[in-house]
């Protein structure tokens, strides 16, 4: 069993509900939508986590591509440049899942990778450009 994260782009007017249904039903994959930005008349984006065997995963991805959905491996890592970081804490204000927090007492920056959904909000918010995404 493997767990992988995909960054999906949907063309405008693409139905999204059926997608997860098929991934479960036809490919036996367990989808977990980490983040979705879908508006009917616009291009949509979804950060999808899939759990399943390697073959099922490949088949699932092929299915998504055939449906006209852009598929790429989600950013695999958030990197913090300690030399640039001034520990202002501003990134913690935009990190909704609570992956970036300030330690109680010391107010030092703590990054809990497991909670990160790769939304990139911190990348944009950091005034020191100290956070980057590694692919």
């Amino acid at each position: 069993m493997a767990r992988r994260r995909l960054d999906l782009t949907f063309p405008p007017r693409q139905a999204t509900k059926a997608i997860t249904y098929h991934l479960v039903k036809d490919f036996d994959l367990v989808p977990n939508i980490l983040r979705a930005q879908i508006q009917p008349a616009q291009e949509g984006r979804m950060l999808l986590e899939l759990t399943g065997s390697a073959e099922q995963f490949e088949a699932g991805v092929a299915f998504l591509r055939a449906e006209g959905i852009g598929v790429r491996e989600a950013a695999s890592d958030i990197c913090l440049d300690d030399e640039r970081c001034v520990v202002c804490g501003l990134c913690t204000a935009v990190c909704r899942p609570g992956a970036l927090t300030l330690a109680e007492g010391t107010a030092e920056l703590v990054f809990d990778k497991d909670k990160c959904v790769y939304c990139e909000a911190c990348v944009v918010a950091c005034p020191r450009r100290a956070v980057t995404l590694r692919f």
């Binding site: 990134c91 300030l102 030092e108």
Partner: peptide, 11 residues
């Protein structure tokens, strides 16, 4: 409401 600072306490 969750809060976040802009001014660095450690520095």
């Amino acid at each position: 409401i969750p809060t976040g600072p802009i001014s660095s306490l450690p520095v």
